[in-house]
């Protein structure tokens, strides 16, 4: 046996790629391009008839932050367009503070903001919390938006540890970083939450009719593009692109599959804040093609589908997926 081992050992160094080393990933540009080329080719035979029937839509806690018009300059507004936050789980919220002034806000249900408001106050978090019922939103402006938000003041909402599949999320706030006169203004509705850092006096929430909560929180100069963004992920079970991943591919790699499935395409031009903190803004939604080398981060659609899939794209490649503030796999498990 030893002789055989020695023979193998003698041969191993001859291998151009050393045996046992981790294999090259399939994520390189060449590998992805090859995959797209192959998939664009119709295999000779018909697709098998094990076609998945559309399943009931399921929504995922996609972290969609709406950014202000000067998106790259500062995140003045954070909107979590999440799933229905009416999960009914208890406790509906929890706030805890550790010794160095970091507060964790855990939210599962926003229908009773009073308790959250009181707890934040007890923990010395300068915050205002308002609940906007369906179809209503607080009239803007309520105060001066802080443009230079201290780095690390608050985190992108993340999954509640141990409840990765739940609807709730957790957010980290470093209370040491608030400057005098600053207030965290939260507006909560059934399906979105905006968190805006304001300076100076903040006027009370005056509810006004709203067809789309997110638009209302935008600075007036921002076109209401967010209204045009479809809200369902198209690449999950039951979606028009079920079984086909688009995240981190190029537009050129994704379009053949859309054509194959007979889908029309729109492009959502994403704005990414400096440092790609997670979340994105929307610069525009258009039918006009973008470059094949643009990067796709997710595909959205209306549900039920109207045959249009929106590709969420950026011109540059980023180190992590802005839609999920990291890999899609960390958020969507199926």
């Amino acid at each position: 046996m030893k002789d055989i081992d020695r023979l193998d050992a003698a041969l191993r160094p001859l291998a151009r790629v050393t045996p046992g080393t981790p294999p090259a990933g399939a994520s390189g540009a060449g590998a992805r391009s090859l995959l797209a080329t192959i998939l664009a080719e119709d295999p000779a035979r018909e697709p098998s008839d094990a076609a998945a029937r559309p399943r009931p839509a399921r929504r995922y806690p996609v972290r969609r932050f709406a950014l202000g018009a000067a998106a790259a300059a500062a995140i003045a507004t954070g909107i979590v367009a999440g799933p229905g936050l009416l999960s009914g789980a208890t406790p509906s919220y929890a706030v805890s503070k550790d010794a160095d002034g970091v507060v964790y806000v855990t939210i599962r249900d926003f229908t009773d903001p009073g308790g959250l408001r009181r707890q934040l106050r007890d923990l010395d978090v300068p915050a205002i919390v308002d609940y906007a019922p369906p179809g209503r939103w607080c009239r803007e402006p309520r105060g001066e938006h802080v443009a230079d938000i201290p780095a690390g003041l608050y985190s992108v909402p993340e999954n509640i540890p141990g409840e990765e599949h739940g609807n709730g999320w957790r957010m980290r706030i470093d209370t040491k970083l608030f400057r005098p006169g600053e207030t965290f203004v939260w507006t909560i509705s059934d399906n979105s939450t905006s968190t805006i850092l304001m300076r100076g006096p903040v006027s009370p929430c005056v509810l006004i009719p709203s067809t789309n909560n997110m638009i209302r929180t935008m600075p007036p100069s921002l076109p209401p593009e967010l209204d045009k963004v479809a809200t369902h992920v198209a690449t999950v079970k039951g979606g028009s692109l079920a079984g086909f991943r688009v995240d981190e591919k190029t537009v050129g790699e994704v379009l053949p599959e859309l054509r194959r499935r007979g889908l029309r395409v729109e492009f959502v031009l994403m704005a990414i804040a400096q440092g790609n903190p997670g979340g994105y803004g929307v610069l525009g939604v258009r039918k006009k093609p973008v470059g094949d080398d643009w990067i796709v981060w997710e595909a959205n659609e209306d549900r039920p589908s109207n045959g249009v899939v929106q590709l969420l794209v950026t011109k540059e490649r980023y180190d992590r997926n802005p839609v999920y503030a990291g890999p899609r796999d960390a958020i969507i498990k199926e």
Partner: peptide, 15 residues
């Protein structure tokens, strides 16, 4: 438009 029929083949191949 009819709901698109999901073809499981590309996903399997990609995996």
């Amino acid at each position: 438009m009819d709901p698109p029929v999901a073809d499981p083949r590309p996903a399997r191949f990609e995996a």
